[in-house]
Amino acid sequence: MDTGLVTTLIVVGVVVVVLVIIGIYLWVTDNALVSLKGRVDQAWSDIAVHVQERAELIPTIVDTVQGYASHEKSVFDDVSRARTETLAAGDASAASTAEGHMQKALKSVFTVAEGYPQLQSSQGFLQLQSELVDTEDKIQSARRSYNGGVRELNTKIRVFPNSTIAKKRGFAEATFFETAEPAAIAEPPRVQF
């Protein structure tokens, strides 16, 4: 065999191997980004489900407390506004703001409830409180899962050469589900009776 032909075959072989490696890398990176985006979307969906559960529970809690403390109208109006804001939030940024307002409003309702011993001993109210705490725990768990996925997706998008692939494929960094007051959502509203 001619040494020129062997050299050409080696060069072509190396080029083909490099192109295959680049192609595999692009394919793996694209699949990873799609998978991470799917994980973030699923986690956001979980948050939305739990927020909806809480929104369905809040009117019953408000009605129960309002039966004892009807003069606390501003507290109940705040909860109603926070509930509406939470349900209307379309993205993580708006939901973060709404969540801070909701936590403050719920704490106000339970602070009012503390002043009524008959309410505190009511089985119905205790059951509602237990359901709310359970729902808040689910929201916090879903929030942690969502934020973990966002952190992973954003890191993958920022790293070169993934950033060029992500940009060309239309992947954008996701927004964390946070609040301006982390203490407001650090612990679900709990009232000890």
Rank of each mutant, 00 (worst) to 15 (best):
S163N: 15
L33T: 01
T111P: 03
E187G: 04
R54W: 02
L33G: 04
A174N: 03
K167T: 08
S93C: 03
R83F: 02
V62R: 08
S80H: 00
D134T: 12
T8K: 07
P161Y: 03
A95I: 00
T64H: 11
D2K: 05
L33N: 07
A43N: 14
N31K: 07
S74D: 15
S93L: 08
K138V: 05
A105E: 05
E85Y: 07
I47Q: 01
Y25V: 04
I22H: 07
Q118D: 09
T84G: 14
A69L: 09
E187N: 09
I21L: 15
V40P: 00
A166T: 02
V150G: 05
A43S: 15
I58R: 01
V191G: 10
L106Y: 04
E187T: 13
A92F: 00
L26F: 13
V28C: 05
L26V: 14
F76P: 09
Y25T: 11
R190M: 05
S35I: 00
A184Q: 06
N147G: 04
Q129C: 12
G4W: 15
A183M: 00
T155W: 01
A92D: 02
E53W: 01
D77E: 13
V109A: 11
V11E: 10
N31S: 09
Y116N: 11
A174V: 00
D137L: 06
V40I: 08
K138P: 02
T164G: 15
K156L: 12
R190T: 14
G149I: 03
A89S: 08
V65K: 04
A180H: 08
E152H: 14
F177D: 03
A180K: 02
A166S: 04
F193R: 09
A92C: 02
D77S: 14
Q192H: 05
G23E: 03
S163P: 04
V191Y: 10
R169Q: 15
S45G: 10
E173I: 01
Y68Q: 06
A43K: 09
T86W: 00
P161G: 02
F171T: 02
V17D: 01
R54V: 09
H71D: 11
P59S: 13
Q52T: 15
A113F: 02
P188S: 15
A48T: 10
I165E: 03
T84I: 13
A32R: 10
L132H: 01
S122C: 08
A48E: 11
T60D: 05
L119T: 06
E136A: 07
P189K: 06
L5M: 12
V11K: 08
E53D: 14
L106S: 04
G124R: 00
N147T: 02
I58M: 13
T111K: 05
E72C: 01
G170H: 07
E136C: 11
N162W: 02
A94H: 07
T155F: 01
V65W: 05
E178A: 13
V28N: 15
G90L: 12
L119N: 05
Q129T: 04
V40T: 13
E114H: 08
S74T: 14
V159I: 01
A180F: 03
